[in-house]
Simulated assay, not measured.
Amino acid sequence: MNEKIFVLVNQKKATNHILHLLLCIPTFGLWLIIWFVVAISNSNHNDKIQKRIDKLLQSEERGINEAELSRQETPKESAASLYRDLLIIGSVAVMTILSFIFDKST
């Protein structure tokens, strides 16, 4: 069980805020949109990892095996994950379309 927790902890992502700040300068702040999406995505990913770690620790305390633990995912968690993924895909699609529109107008 401790090996799984170690693997999960190493899967957490960190946003490189200095790099994103430097990329905002030559793009006149347009990079803020990407920075925001990346920061939110990483935060959501880390929250999901932390929830899995918490579930593993709780199951260890209660003596529940991993098969039972995996069956306990609620539909609300699945729906939230799907909604977040659709929001990110939609944001990227809108940014791509806007970049094509502004590129043709110049």
Rank of each mutant, 00 (worst) to 15 (best):
M1I: 09
M1E: 14
M1Y: 11
M1D: 06
N2I: 08
N2R: 06
K4F: 07
I5F: 03
I5G: 03
I5W: 02
I5A: 05
F6A: 10
F6Q: 12
V7S: 03
V7Y: 12
L8T: 03
L8A: 12
L8F: 13
N10D: 05
Q11E: 15
Q11R: 01
K12F: 06
A14Q: 12
H17G: 00
H17N: 03
I18P: 01
L19S: 08
L19V: 14
H20T: 01
H20N: 09
H20M: 11
H20R: 04
L21K: 07
L21H: 05
L22P: 00
L23M: 14
L23C: 07
L23D: 01
P26M: 04
T27L: 11
T27C: 02
F28E: 01
W31F: 13
L32R: 11
I33E: 05
I33H: 02
W35N: 11
W35P: 00
F36P: 00
V37M: 05
V37D: 10
V38E: 12
A39L: 12
A39C: 08
I40R: 13
I40V: 13
I40Q: 08
S41L: 08
S41V: 02
N42Y: 14
S43N: 12
S43Q: 03
S43G: 05
N44E: 11
H45L: 13
N46V: 09
N46R: 04
N46Y: 09
N46H: 09
D47Q: 10
K48T: 05
I49T: 09
Q50P: 00
K51W: 01
K51F: 02
K51R: 10
R52S: 04
R52H: 04
I53D: 04
I53G: 02
D54V: 08
K55D: 07
L56K: 03
L57P: 01
L57Y: 05
S59Q: 11
S59R: 06
S59P: 00
E60S: 02
G63I: 04
I64H: 04
N65H: 14
E66L: 15
E66Y: 15
A67D: 03
E68S: 04
E68C: 00
E68Q: 11
E68R: 11
L69E: 15
L69H: 10
S70I: 05
S70Y: 11
R71D: 09
R71G: 01
R71Y: 09
Q72T: 10
E73D: 10
E73M: 07
T74G: 01
P75V: 13
P75E: 10
E77C: 00
E77T: 03
S78P: 00
A79V: 02
L82E: 12
L82M: 05
Y83Q: 12
R84I: 03
D85Y: 06
D85A: 05
L86D: 02
L87K: 13
L87V: 15
I88P: 00
G90A: 14
S91M: 14
S91D: 05
V92P: 01
V92N: 03
V92D: 00
A93I: 10
M95V: 15
T96I: 13
T96H: 03
T96V: 10
I97Q: 02
I97V: 15
L98T: 07
L98C: 09
L98D: 09
L98Q: 11
S99P: 01
F100R: 01
F100K: 05
F100E: 10
F100P: 04
I101H: 03
D103I: 08
D103L: 11
K104L: 15
S105D: 06
S105Y: 06
T106D: 08
T106K: 14
T106Q: 12
